[in-house]
């Protein structure tokens, strides 16, 4: 029943066996102990499970675990380098861009993808770029500011 899958997660080669119907989210959380991605809806409507697959941000609840074969996957757990936080992480903390924090891993991954494509986005571009990530606590104000500030840092 199980399918063997070899993939790369946060730079490490990872092998796992999963049932073909299992989502990548379930594999990450239940089989690989990577519980940073959260399940808020399971239907691609909230973005809490966002990860990158081959450089593109996806909802891991809408990807099968078996599709990960040979792909490069990045999760929130791989965002910092050693003890050094990614500028987005630093700015989310500094701007208090999180309250309950459950949407934060998804926002960080979506914001990273956004800034990789568009290093100097306008407020509107940030807002539309993050429209797939629901936050119920902050009203998004501080999230947008954190992304603006992180973009500035990343542009150097």
């Amino acid at each position: 029943m199980g399918v063997l899958v070899t993939t790369t997660i946060n730079g490490d080669t990872v092998e796992f066996a999963c049932d073909p119907h299992e989502s990548l989210l379930d594999v990450l959380r239940n089989r690989l102990g990577l519980s940073g991605a959260k399940e808020g809806c399971g239907t691609g409507d909230c973005g809490s499970c966002s990860v990158q697959v081959d450089g593109r941000v996806v909802c891991s609840c809408l990807v099968l675990g078996v599709e990960a074969e040979g792909r490069e996957i990045e999760t929130v757990e791989g965002l910092s380098t050693g003890t050094e936080l990614h500028p987005l992480q630093t700015k989310f903390l500094e701007h208090a861009a999180l309250q309950c924090g459950v949407c934060t891993p998804g926002f960080l991954m979506a914001a990273k993808a956004l800034l990789e494509k568009n290093p100097d986005p306008t407020e509107e571009e940030i807002r539309f770029g993050l429209a797939g990530n629901l936050c119920r606590c902050t009203g998004y104000d501080k999230i947008v500011r954190a992304v603006q500030d992180a973009a500035k840092v990343m542009r150097g």
């Binding site: 697959v53 593109r56 941000v57 909802c59 809408l62 979506a110 770029g129 429209a131 797939g132 990530n133």
Partner: peptide, 9 residues
Amino acid sequence: IGSKQVQSR
């Protein structure tokens, strides 16, 4: 269609 996440797929 959907979000940026969905459009990736």
